[in-house]
Simulated assay, not measured.
Amino acid sequence: MTVIIKNDYLQAAINEKGAELTSLKANEIEYMWQADPAFWGRHAPILFPFVGRLKDDQYSYKGKTYPMSQHGFARDEMFQVKEQTEEKVVLVLESSEKTKEVYPFDFLLTVSYEVWGEGLRVRFEVDNTGDDEMLFALGGHPAFNVPMDKGLDFEDYFFSFSPQKSRVKIPLEGPYANLDQKTLGQTNTNIRISHDLFQNDALIYETKGLNTFTISAEDSPHSVTLAYNHIPYVGLWSPYPKEAPFICIEPWWGFADTVDSTGKLEEKPGMNRLAAAEKFKTQFSITVR
């Protein structure tokens, strides 16, 4: 089932499967990628309880090995609508015997979407409902149509960043992060978008404080901006070598296994730790014009 929320400017559609944002319309323009499987069959999956790929698609915790596909299982689970108004919807996913087969923690994941003015606010809450410390990663993966305008091409667009400063860049070797090869990414200026920009997979940056990432074009009044505060990583991605007409801006609280990963969850970098009965809260916003 798809839930629609809207105001006088913006309309968003959210699928109960995966609590996935599937449409964001304004100015008679569809800003969200429409999941053409020829390129990538998703719109904006929620990444939980892992971000990225694990070595051999598995991990171990307290001596037991668990299978886990890329980006975790939440994107394929059915969420329940807990609350809905014209401008807001709240969806929840609770741990179950099924989730415990691959992830041995008790949790409640709450995702809310709310339209306000020209923007959409996306909030996450993770509750540790168990008795033990919980380890998890979390991520957004929204994909935006590029070009947004008729008559423009993919290469007519560029990334702009605020604050306009260099950020630490984490390179990938295959699907795995190489933390020993970090460099300083030149996000102190605009970056022209091209398909070749993603030939080594996602561009991953460490981020601190308030950050905004915008996709726009000089000859267009339309743009997409994703903004957040205190989220540690962002991934910018479009599939390569496919010349896909979309780009993802992905706020992450975690990242893939490293090239030297031991496979032990207790040793995995980037994971969040939540004590019993504690709650983790975070959010980001998407603004379109």
Rank of each mutant, 00 (worst) to 15 (best):
F246H: 13
L47D: 06
E243G: 12
R123C: 06
F255R: 08
H222D: 00
I170D: 02
F50P: 09
R53T: 13
I215P: 03
S220R: 05
V92Q: 08
N128S: 03
F107C: 11
D196S: 14
Y228T: 10
I193N: 06
D156M: 00
K55Y: 12
Q186D: 03
F39G: 11
I215N: 03
T282P: 08
D36I: 08
D180M: 05
T282E: 07
T212H: 06
E173A: 12
E125R: 11
N145T: 12
L109I: 10
V122K: 14
D153P: 00
I4V: 15
I249Q: 09
T110S: 03
D149K: 04
T85M: 07
D260V: 08
E86V: 13
F255L: 14
M271G: 03
F73G: 11
I249K: 10
P269Y: 06
M32R: 05
I193C: 05
L24C: 14
A277K: 01
P251W: 04
L54G: 09
A13V: 03
L236K: 06
G185E: 00
M134N: 01
E16K: 15
T225Q: 14
L10C: 11
E83N: 12
G209W: 00
E20C: 09
E173Q: 13
T22K: 08
T262E: 09
L108T: 14
V122A: 07
N7K: 12
A177H: 11
A275W: 09
D219P: 01
G209Y: 06
P245C: 09
P245W: 12
T262R: 09
I204R: 05
I193Y: 09
L197P: 01
K88Y: 01
T225W: 09
N27I: 06
P241T: 13
E155C: 04
P239Y: 06
L135C: 06
L203D: 08
E86H: 13
C248R: 11
Y176L: 12
L135N: 02
P241A: 15
L109G: 15
A217W: 02
L210G: 01
V122P: 01
E278M: 05
N211M: 10
E173V: 15
E206L: 05
Q80K: 14
Y233H: 07
E114M: 04
W252H: 04
P241K: 13
R192F: 02
T85C: 14
V224R: 07
V102Y: 14
F284G: 00
S216A: 05
G63H: 12
I215S: 06
L236G: 00
P147V: 01
A217N: 02
Y66D: 14
M1P: 15
S220G: 08
P241L: 13
I247W: 09
A12T: 13
A19V: 03
V51W: 05
V81H: 14
G235R: 04
S261P: 05
L265T: 05
H230G: 00
L91D: 15
E114W: 07
E267G: 04
W33L: 06
A19H: 04
